[in-house]
Design a protein around this nucleic acid. Structure first.
Lengths: 126, 126, 126, 126
DNA sequence: GTGGTCTAGACCACC
DNA sequence: GTGGTCTAGACCACG
């Protein structure tokens, strides 16, 4: 879990950054189902933030059924978490893509111009 | 300016919605350069929101050079506003498209899947 | 909202007591849809507890779709809240009744003895 | 004592599950007065839990007079334990039934609806 | 050691 | 004024 990192002024709340990154880590199977995640205090120490902030992120992940508490031991990734995190991420992408494209059209760009932009971006990423 | 409308629970701040919509109206030449915009009180009354909120939106538009004060008359659209708003909007779109595509790739979608999604969206909008 | 009250050592967390009581108040239509609920600071002052604790309760109610935030104004009861709270409460009762009855049978009480207990209780309540 | 089993995420603490199950076993005379119960280490090994947890459960049972230490031998069920466990269980059931019924009435269910629910449950259990 | 809860007090954006 | 976020530090139950 050394790969987690937060930026205080990202616009996104710190606890939300943690939620997001944990979900992505689970989606990418960097963290497997059943695995214990870093303790609240440990992660807080690593990220140099307040334990309450980590706790809030973990609590939200519990509310969403991604993590489950094991009394006295810590928090564990639930069974169906990986599948859920993956589909949630794809759905998120789809929704945002949809919104951006709608705005692009509404702002006067033609379908051809948009596709050209998309292809240029996709090529530059490969 | 009757075309403006705000949604209190959009996630976006109300003053930001106003800023955004005014810019778009100028970009689409619904509002022309030199044209006087409604007074703070008038718009606040129409949208049934707090005058402070309208005032804040207008102030930001002045700070960005989109609007300018005319002593004794009110606020009017500046000379280069239309061109600026158009390019700003396209640039905004381009940046967000870029970001969404980067996330899409990072989340495991292939370039083909992404293009397929894009084409499907574009067709449904026409 | 003067009717809300919390007991520090109820076994149930304070924020949970608030969540529960607000839901019951909505179910009983003591609080109507669209109505603004007491502010975080106001309720904290009345109950003589920390605003964060109230905030946590309100946040959970938002997560469950019972309340919604109106920026700068406060929190409001959502449209479908009453119906949801009512059915949730009945479902809760049903589940607990089920569990208690299962234990009663498992502990050797006969169906007749249980029904006798139930009737005695019901009569004493009327 | 092979019949004991614990579920880490039951909501109920593990040591409480042990206390409860031991009491029920005594109430059902699965364990008789005078009988020696498994050692802390033995039970901890069987249930694959921390010996501290078993120890805590046994300590509570001693505090309640259900178990007593026999120097050099271990812990055994006290003389009046069975009677006490039975009446305690019935009393527990009665109290919880009372509470659930009170809530049911307070939540708007009529006495008839409640009795209907009770009968339905009782039938499904037989 | 673990998470859960609560308090106290600060700062922010928004209306 | 409103809610939202974060920090700091305390206490509790549990293993």
């Amino acid at each position: 879990m050394v790969f987690l990192q937060v930026q205080p002024d990202d616009g996104l709340a710190i606890y939300d950054q943690i939620v997001r990154q944990v979900k992505f880590a689970i989606a990418d199977q960097v963290m497997e189902s059943g695995e214990l995640i870093p303790s609240v205090r440990e992660l807080a120490r690593q990220l140099m933030i307040n334990p309450n902030t980590v706790s809030r992120a973990y609590r939200q992940l519990q509310d969403e059924g991604i993590l489950e508490a094991v009394r006295g031991l810590g928090l564990r990734v639930t069974a169906g978490a990986a599948r859920r995190c993956r589909s949630e991420r794809v759905e998120l992408i789809r929704a945002r893509l949809k919104q951006v494209l709608a705005e692009a059209i509404q702002s006067g760009l033609t379908a051809e111009e948009i596709q050209s932009l998309v292809q240029k971006e996709l090529r530059s990423k490969n």
